[in-house]
Design a protein around this nucleic acid. Structure first.
Lengths: 172, 172
DNA sequence: AGCTCTATGTATAATTC
DNA sequence: TGAATTATACATAGAGC
């Protein structure tokens, strides 16, 4: 049969809900991709599945795929550098960022994105104070992760400087 | 007339592109909202307009609005604490996080979100190494922001400890 | 479980106001 | 401009593999 008018409420039947999720997730990402192409704006959709699976992200899986292939064809030394200290490496994220680079690097937009993400993080921490006990673990976890990140960046910088010192000519 | 088959490429005509953007942005957010409602997953769409305006976010502007109103009715002292050290306060972000809190705080989901955001940040930094000069500013900027953030968190913690010291009974 | 196949609900391109 | 209108393209609920 064809379709019925949909009632806007949580689908209780597990298998139906899962099917609907799969279909509509595809639709949403396609729409996001089209908006990006047609209007030349950066669009990003993030979908968190309730329990186990990874969150699904991005306007266009095909684009990501294409860029990922490019990444994989990079000289292996450079590839290694990309993964430096990344315990849980996610090609998806890297490829999306490469895509942004490819598209001509709109610095303002990148900065805005970064700001937005940091807003989320800092906002989260501040909001945590409302329900203290409940969120303490999360709070601590963010703190740890940021310490990690700072360390990672320090390492990256250090290895860059080291390279500069070894080469006589300045890198491009 | 009705609609024509759409060609998937950047719309060059400014006014047409703007109109299409407005329509499709609405459609996308509606879809995201429906997915959230029907499947009980957290969905987040972020749309960056090319130049001036803020990025448009969220599955459901109405929900955000409702939560924002709740936030604004909080005791003013608590409100002030929310804004602590936030030079560029964005109620939108806070309200989204409050929404998550209201919805019953799914800790795993929050942790996953946090991880995703940190992936973005760290991924960005790592990728920066590809096109060194071009991305140096951004790189530095992220570094600065994270230092800021760490400081903010330290301050928050310090003020929390201070409060604990002043009160005889332990907080909730 | 996930794919294909329709019938039908929705989104939206073009046009008007 | 932006909000309404209308004709059509597109998305997708339900059913069958």
């Amino acid at each position: 049969m064809g379709r019925r008018k949909v009632r806007l409420e949580l689908i209780t039947n597990d298998s139906v809900r899962k099917t609907t999720f799969r279909k509509r997730k595809g639709g949403l990402l396609k729409k996001a991709s089209e908006l990006k192409t047609l209007c030349g704006v950066d669009t990003c959709a993030i979908i968190y599945t309730a329990n186990d699976a990874e969150p699904h992200v991005w306007p266009s899986p095909e684009d990501a795929q294409r860029v990922l292939e490019r990444f994989q064809s990079l000289p292996s030394k450079k590839q290694g550098k990309h993964m430096l200290n990344h315990e849980d490496y996610r090609p998806k994220d890297v490829s999306m960022l490469e895509l942004k680079l490819e598209n001509g690097i709109k610095r303002n937009q990148d900065l805005e994105m970064e700001l937005l993400l940091l807003d989320h993080l800092s906002g989260k921490n501040v909001v945590d104070l409302i329900k203290d006990d409940e969120m303490k673990m999360l709070y601590q976890s963010v703190d740890d992760k940021i310490r990690d990140l700072t360390l990672q960046m320090a390492n990256l910088k250090a290895s860059e400087v080291e390279e500069d010192a070894h080469s006589t000519a300045p890198a491009n």
